[in-house]
Design a protein around this nucleic acid. Structure first.
Lengths: 336, 336
DNA sequence: CTGAAAGCGCTTACAG
DNA sequence: CTGAAAGCGCTTACAG
């Protein structure tokens, strides 16, 4: 026994137009009429059908979220930030992550092409022309999260990787007076990794520490990458006094390598990371790292996207907001 | 310039009914007509509007996922399992997690009451009458994941907590010959926790180890809970030779406590956990624990839900599937 | 195999 | 403040 707008209108002795107005909170309806309709609706357990509403209004009150497969640690925080903000504003969230059987592109097309969502939050580690093309073509707004590559003419929220890296390396230099600070970098084609490397180099330069090729090794953001990077650095004749791992996962690998090599952190070597992943607080000694506001990234993206949807201000508007990171001081750097 | 079914029909010189049939892959359409329509559609970049489709068919091709706030570690795996399976079958996923501002109940009502989804996957740690009531009232099917409490007349997928606990404790007894095996339990009102305790007790009993009140302390599934539970057990006159922590998070706390107390794992005390959370592989020594197939839980739930939707077999059908766990042998139990 | 038409359940410009 | 009616973009039973 389904109850629709017609049934409510009938029972209330008004037209369906009036019922509709009551539920869209129109100010045109007399209070007494409103009360009557609301009462009947409650009795009948009536809830307006959102699909019909969507078709008529050409709006779905739903945002799409497209995520890469590899977000791992951040997945939950991002979704959480998005979901919470969306809920506050009475919106729904349709998620889709790309994986083996589906790439970002397909997923995006599916969301954008159809009338299923009013806008999309896209986390694409690497923008490319085809993605930009789809966004440009679509009438629906898109907000990028931490996108790398050409983000021209899009709204883009990202983490301040550069400053984060700069300040943690600065901490090693200023607070601890380390002179030989090494770095295990992230993947060469990863934008986060590049910014972090830049921050590292800038800090060295700023404090007059000479550049030393032997102090920089390439990594890949994985535990194994950190493990090998650490071993390599600590097997050289000239050893660093501190190592900046480009992310916490690699720091985890470094802890393992240190244990194997009987090298003590921070007594023999100071170590710092980046990301402040959940796991890092359980490393011993506590990892000094850089906190990144993931949930905030999600909620800010939602707020901006809804703004775009409501004001119909789409593309052509390049917008970028860089969220600040913060230093998380543990003991792995030598503090305390 | 939006392109709808009418425009395609016009260009192709057919009726909109025919176009519609082409896109629902009706066998009624002649192949040549089909080809023509498909070609025009492609040229025009036409994609049928899913909202209109939904309204007409009274089906949304979307499943709702309602999660509690506290899934933490599992969040990603669950969503991933669900999303992947849903995608395979061409369905969309609307997610919503409850949090401070919204409880499971509201979230559920929102999904069920509206025509926004065709079915719901619900992870409610604790079912109650009101939740059951909503499910019963709704015409849409619901599949429960790891639900505790009264799950009567619902489809329910869960983890085999009992056997998992039994077998890891059995491992401690049979493989390692420990006689005094303690346990730090989970919250008393948590169903996973209860099953795990039962498995523990059953194993002791089976192998003729006497019950010892002093060997069981209450915990809460948190790191702190494990920390304190461990300290309590190891401060008694009569100390255990092995401890079963009811989940890995508490095992993490135990590692911290052990470090503080200068107690070596497994030399001085064997330790095992439950869940095989991501973090546990980085504990040193590697934690022996019980793996739970979270992603599989998600995908199985989807498959079952879609079955219910397609066959219109709703409720009145109590169904339960218990997914097996597996032992993950590390070194914390004394192995290797 | 194809089309005309009713219907899905709403919203909203228009008229009063 | 309220209602009649057109429209949102599809699907599908019915007729041919």
């Amino acid at each position: 026994m389904k109850v629709d707008i017609k049934k409510v209108a009938e029972k209330a002795g008004v037209s369906i137009a009036t019922v509709s107005r009551v539920f869209s909170n129109s100010e045109l309806v007399k209070q007494t009429t409103k009360d009557k309709v609301l009462k009947i609706s409650k009795d009948l357990n009536y809830i307006p059908n959102p699909i019909a509403r969507s078709l008529s209004r050409q709006l779905t009150d739903t945002i799409g979220v497209v995520l890469p497969d590899l977000v791992g640690e951040f997945f939950m925080d991002i979704i959480h930030g998005i979901d919470e903000e969306a809920y506050k504003q009475n919106w729904f969230v349709l998620v889709s992550s790309s994986h083996s059987k589906r790439n970002i592109l397909e997923t995006l097309i599916e969301f954008m092409g159809s009338g299923r969502v009013d806008g999309v939050i896209l986390m694409a580690p690497q923008m490319d022309e085809r993605i930009n093309e789809i966004i440009k073509r679509s009438k629906r707004p898109v907000v990028l999260i931490n996108a790398g590559g050409d983000t021209n003419n899009n709204a883009n929220f990202k983490i301040d990787n550069y400053k984060g890296a700069y300040s943690i390396v600065e901490h090693l230099i200023v607070k601890h007076k380390y002179k030989k600070i090494a770095m295990v970098e992230g993947p060469k084609d990863n934008y986060d990794a590049i910014d972090r490397s830049n921050g590292y180099h800038k800090a060295l330069q700023k404090y007059g520490l000479s550049k030393n090729e032997a102090m920089v090794v390439e990594g890949d953001f994985s535990v194994e990458g950190g493990y090998h990077g650490f071993k390599k650095l600590m097997s050289q004749k000239e050893k660093p006094n501190a190592i900046f791992m480009a992310n916490d996962m690699m720091a985890v690998g470094a802890y393992q390598a240190a244990k194997e090599m009987k090298i003590k952190i921070p007594e023999n070597i100071a170590l710092v990371g980046f990301d402040d992943i959940y796991l890092s607080q359980f490393l011993y000694p506590r990892l000094t790292t850089v906190h990144v506001p993931i949930a905030e990234l999600g909620s800010k993206a939602v707020i901006h996207l809804l703004g775009m949807i409501n004001n119909n201000k789409k593309k052509n508007k390049s917008f970028i907001e860089v969220l600040p990171t913060s230093l998380v001081v543990g003991e792995s750097c030598g503090c305390k």
